[in-house]
Each structure stands twice: as C-alpha cells, then as structure tokens.
Design a protein around this nucleic acid. Structure first.
Lengths: 393, 393
DNA sequence: CTGCTTTGTCCTGTGGAAGATGAAAGTCCA
DNA sequence: TGGACTTTCATCTTCCACAGGACAAAGCAG
C-alpha cells in the first residue's frame, strides 16, 4: 500500500476523509466539484489502492442509505517533536487521532545520534504496545531552522552537532517510510490548525515559548518558512539595546530576556540576592535553578517568580505587538512548555499587545493559549507528512 | 470591449502577453500547458473579444513564420497614487508601459472630495494630451489601510475625512470602468514586482519611507494584506519606549522618530539650537521646515541633517532587522520620497540590519533601493487592476 | 526547384459532465 | 402488517471538450 495519491482529486478526497472522518460518497460529492460519475471512479481507485475502505452504511437522509467510506484504519503516521529539553513521540491513525503518545526529557545538545537512538527506542515501545506494525509516513520537528526541501537543520543555535545532519534521510532509512522535517514551531502551528484553536483561521501566528522563543507563521492557510527556512525566528529580535548579552552575539534579544536560560539566570540572581525565599530554597536544594523552578515557584504563588513571568510576558508582548502591526493576523496562539502559568503569561502579553498595537489590527484579534498543549507538535508533524502524502504526485 | 477574461486559460494568456509583450502563438504554447488545438481556440476567442490583436509575423525560427499576437494596443489602464503630500497619475497601455505621467503636490488632508477633483483634472489633462479616450480599468492607492474587497479606507490615521469614503465606488462612477483600491505601499510592492527590482522574487518586503512609514509584504508572489487590511503598518512599531510621543497615542513609534513630521520637528529644534547653519537659514527663509528641507540640506552636505537621516535609517534598520528575523524575506526594497539621499539611508539601514539579524536570514539578503522611484505606485496600481481584469470571471 | 523545418488546421479517440434510468430504502396510510 | 408512494443512491447513456496525431501550408536553404 503506497500512500502517495495519484491525482489532485484523490488528494482532495483523502484530506477530506482525514479531516472529516468517515463520510458517505454523497457527502463527499457535496464538498468537491466533481460529477457523480467522476467521483465514483476516483473513490473506486482509492478503494483499489487500499488507502480507503468501505465502512458500512451511512445514516439515512430520508431515502436509500449511502455506503460510507473512510481512510484505511490500518494507516499509521508517526509524529516526533524534538524540543530543546524533551522529546515527544506519538502514533496516529489516518485521521490523525493520537493512538499513543510518549514524552521524555532529553537534552537536544547530546547530539543527533544519541537523540535518534532514544527516539527509535520510544518508537519501538509504541510498536510493542501494538499501536503500529508499520508507518506510512513520519513527521519530525527540531528546535531550529530547517532547510525544508532537504529536511536538514541549518545553523541551529541551540543544537550543536545538528548542523547539516541528514535528519530526513536518516529517519526515513530507519523507519522505511517517507519523512518530512520541519521547525518545531511550524509543526505546533500546523497542529493547532489541524486540531486546535486555529482550525478555521487562515492567517495566524503561533508563538512558542520555551527554552527558545519562536513563531510559526501561517499565511493563507500555508506555513510560511521564509527563503532560508528561518522565518519565525523571533527569539533574537532586539527588545532593549541595553539589555543582557545573548548567546547569538547581540545584546537585548528577546531570548536574552525571557528564554529558558535567561529565566534561570535571573532566578539565580534573585535567589542569591535574598529576594525570594522560595527560589532560594530551591537553589539550595538542587544546586541550580531552571525555568521549571521559576514556573513552579510562580505557580506556588511566589511573587518574585510571578514578577519574572510577568516581565517576560511583557517583553514578549512587546515583540508580538510589533508582529501584529506588521502581519495583521486573525489570531495569535501562545504555546510551549508553560505548564500552569499560561494564563499569567497570557494576561501580561495581552496587556502589552492591546496597549501597543493599533486598534485596527487588534480590534477583534484573539490572543489565546494553544488547545493541544504538549501534543501540538506531534499532531502537526503527522499533519505535515499526511499533507505531503495526500497530495498530487 | 469588456476586459474581463472568461476562463483561466485566457487569463493566463493575457497576463503572459502583458508581461512578455507581443508573442508568437508557438511561444505562448511553450509557456502554457495546453494542446495546440485548445490554444488556437482560446486565442481565437481572445481575438474575437478584441482584447488581443494580430501583430504581424514573428521572426522566423527556420521554417514557416508564426503570426504574432499582442494585447490590444488601444487598451488603457489608469494608475493613481495618492500620497500624504502628493498625487501621481499615470496612463499605461495593456502592457503596463507608462504612456503619460503627472505628479502634483497635494495634501491628502484636504479630504477625499477635493483630492478627487484634482485627480480627475489630472486625468482630464492626460486625456486631452491624446493618451487615452477611455479606460479599461484603474487602480488607486491611498496612504492608509484599506478594506480591500470593498475598496474603502478604514481608520486611516493621516487621512482625516477619508474613513469609510467609498473610493472605489466613486472613482468607478467617474471613470466608467472597474476600479480597485489598495494601500499605497502594497502598490509600490506590486510595482517593483511587475517592473522593478523584485521581478523574480516571490517573498519580499517593500519599505516605503515618506510622511508615514509602511511596508508592503509579498508572500509567494501575492500581496499579504492581513485580516483587516492593516498589514505592513510598521510606522507604529515601538522602537524606544522612552522615545517621543506619537500621534497614535503611544510613545517611541518608528514614525515618531523618523516620519516626515518627526524629521521636521527635529530639524526645527536643531536649527533653533543653532546646531546647523544650513537648516537655520532655511527655517529663516520659509518660516518652517519640512522633511524636504532636511533632505535638501543633507544632499548639500550639511552634517547635522545627514546625521538626522543616518539616525533615522538606523531606527528603521532596527525595525527591518526584526521583520527580517520574523519573515525571512528574499529581498528588501527601500523606496518612497527619498530624493537624492537614498544611498545614505540605505547604508545606515544595511548596517543596522546586517548587525542585528541572524546570519542565516541575512546571508544573501539583498537590501536595495526601488528601481521605479516615483512611478512604482502607479505601475503597481495598473498591475493590480490588470491582474483583476486578466483573471477568471 | 527541391528537400527540410516550422506553423496552422483538421480529425479522431478518450475522458469527463450531466441527464436518464433503475434499485434500494424510508414513510405514510389503510 | 403490507403495499403504494417518495426520496435518495448508484449506474448507464449521451454529449461535449480537449489532447494528440496527421496533414497541409508556408517559409528557409542550397
């Protein structure tokens, strides 16, 4: 069963079946501009390939009942989301419903080989659980810019050792199926578009706040990757020329204010200055502080930690305000590893954006948290590869 | 002769003939994926409508000579570019070559009725010069956000009295032809894409620096207008929270630093402070200073005026650097009413962008001046309407 | 004037759209 | 409960449009 669809009509039908679930032939006919005869031929061909199967009778619409068709339930997509400090792996069926999901902490800096080993072990675990005996396609996200056509990371600042590593090629070899590679932020955007808050929006931004800060850009329903694949790299936009130095060589970048490392740095400073008992005790206990410590302290109500989050939200809001003025999106989605304090962050971002951008752009601009949380990336990954497979050859 | 083409093939052919000039039928066949018979039929239909005419024999390619076809030479498009302080009007043929061009200073704040009167007088002048006895379509640009589908300015900050004025409807009535209205910056981008530096680039930004500062955004060859038509409104991006107050109510907007009014304000302050003899004498002579005075003084070598320009360029570069990080374009075009000092400005913008953006985004990112200068807007206007007319009905 | 190349037109076969027909299922009423 | 009627679905048939090849016309080169 080769998953690549042959022509534009079949691709269209496959995507409809993916997104709408099992449908009667007539319901499909209502959605595509094809004659009944042509539709019947194309569906027959899809049935022949095995990508689509008959699925009983549809509910009656008052007369003779129609036969349902659906994406073959044996179809399996793999989604991999490599973050800076964690890996998510999920298996979905052809309708991109998650059948199994594993998450593990893992520092991407251990390099591609070690990461791959780990990812493959997780995949094996999902396989052993009986969720898949094969994969029809896989999508993988990495936390840095990617030369999309080749599926190769380029000059990734937080991924030493990954530059030029043939991620697509390597994974495709291992899994024996087609693979696409993209920036993790783009996949998050795709995920929210597929199954989250952005389902009906054609132009939106998806801000991911974690170790790095990035932005997925969707224009007319399509991800915009830029000419070198670095679009959305907003972590190194300067918010304050007098700000702290950044790993990129400049000063006052957004990430230098509010990236994971910056947050940890500020927290340590505040703990050592005796400003926060909560942070100080955590520092005492662990010997170091991470962004998660700040997050936990803030969730526990520590005012100093909360203030760090608010300040960061405000800085981020400042940048988003600029982007909103520039891009005039219909929605801004905030996501990333913000367990628990999403709403605190959201509030300060909103305040800043609504204050700074012009009313015409913010008039009815929703700024919301992502719906999918940790699975946005993996869902986006399967969406990416399924879009690729369900497209004209 | 109705200009609206009937089907997708005819639209395609018309655009090819517009952009490539007279072509043999065979050369057209090489560019479209149509059978010879179908191509012949479609061209015959176009000939019937009168939109396309026979144009002698093509040069021999070694055998029987082919008959050329071309867009009807009687086709006339009108381009109107209303700037904050000037109006440009031009007439083109069907190949968007400028046949006549008039420019006049005019403050847009006199309101739509007065501006229209003036524009129509200019149109009449071009008509009287024998350049056109009719118009097949017109495009018009205004210096503010436009609800594109309706052709109506919305909440334009520097155009009091224009909010909601039915520009499209009114002009269409007067001229008796289809009209499209857009933001002047978008038209500039379209102009540079049609006949300027951006001919072969699919993703680029077009920065217009004048009374206001705006940015045309082209994604995958299409202008991105945003959900409310305010995309590219970068004049009110904050570059310095401690900066001067802006008319929009915020502080430190780019326009508050480097818009036309800001430039005049700073120049007056410097002149009065005795920092520049050149500016002081101009202030003395005219009783006031404008951006043009600064421009002239800078061109004359006045170091204080030059410094103003450099500082402004640096501020602008700061914003462009952010946009480049975000959008990762393949080209940045700088244009607007920068007579003479384009290169000074360009230099300081380049310095700032190359310093601040990441190498991956700036690696081979050309930042160049627009090629078309004052006619970019009007060319873009005719491109806009011709695209509309040369599209499937 | 004779081959050779290119261009334009005609013709035929195929594929798809739309209407017509038959089959299956549901509804209504006796 | 059964039969007639209605509604919907699937297939069959017809017609049209287009692609691609064949052939004629026009120009070039020697």
């Amino acid at each position: 069963m080769t998953a690549r669809s042959a022509n534009v009509h079949q691709a269209r039908l496959l995507r409809l079946l993916r997104d709408l679930g099992p449908q009667s032939r007539v319901a499909l006919g209502d959605r595509v501009e094809l004659s009944r005869s042509k539709l019947a031929v194309e569906i027959d061909r899809l049935l022949e390939t095995g990508l689509v199967v008959q699925d009983g009778l549809a509910a009656s619409r008052g007369g003779r009942r129609s036969h349902n068709v659906r994406i073959a339930p044996s179809l399996r997509f793999l989604g991999v989301d490599i973050g800076a400090t964690s890996v998510d792996v999920a298996v979905t069926n052809g309708e991109l419903e998650i059948l199994g999901h594993l998450a593990e902490p893992l520092d991407v800096r251990v390099g591609p080989v070690a990461v791959f080993e780990r990812v493959l072990a997780m995949v094996a675990k999902l396989r052993d659980a009986g969720l898949a005996d094969h994969f029809d396609g896989a999508g993988i996200g990495v936390p840095g810019p990617v030369r999309f056509p080749e599926g190769v990371p380029v000059a990734p600042p937080i991924m030493p050792g990954w530059d030029g590593f043939p991620v697509r090629e390597a994974l495709s070899q291992e899994l024996g199926c087609p693979v696409l590679v993209d920036n993790d932020v783009n996949l998050m955007a795709l995920g929210e578009q597929q199954a989250g808050v952005a389902r009906s929006v054609r132009d939106f931004l998806c801000i991911k706040i974690g170790t790095g800060i990035g932005c997925g850009i969707v224009v007319s329903g399509e991800v915009h990757r830029g000419v070198t694949g670095s679009a959305g790299d907003i972590g190194h936009i300067q918010v304050d020329p007098a700000g702290p130095p950044c790993a990129c060589g400049n000063t006052g970048c957004l990430e230098a204010h509010f990236g994971g490392n910056a947050l940890a740095r500020d927290a340590v400073a505040l703990a050592e200055a005796g400003r926060s008992v909560e942070l100080a005790s955590r520092l005492e206990a662990a010997g170091r502080l991470t962004a998660e410590d700040v997050s936990a302290a803030a969730s526990a109500g520590d005012p100093v930690a909360l203030d760090l989050i608010r300040q960061g939200g405000s800085r981020t809001g400042q940048v988003i305000a600029s982007l909103v003025s520039f891009f005039n999106p219909g929605l801004v989605v905030i996501g990333g590893g913000l367990t628990g304090l999403g709403h605190t962050l959201l509030a300060s971002i909103r305040t800043q954006v609504y204050r700074q951008s012009l009313p015409l752009a913010t008039g009815n601009l929703p700024i919301v948290l992502g719906e999918l949380g940790p699975v946005a990336g993996v869902v986006g990954a399967t969406r990416l590869i399924s879009d690729h497979l369900f497209s004209p050859a």
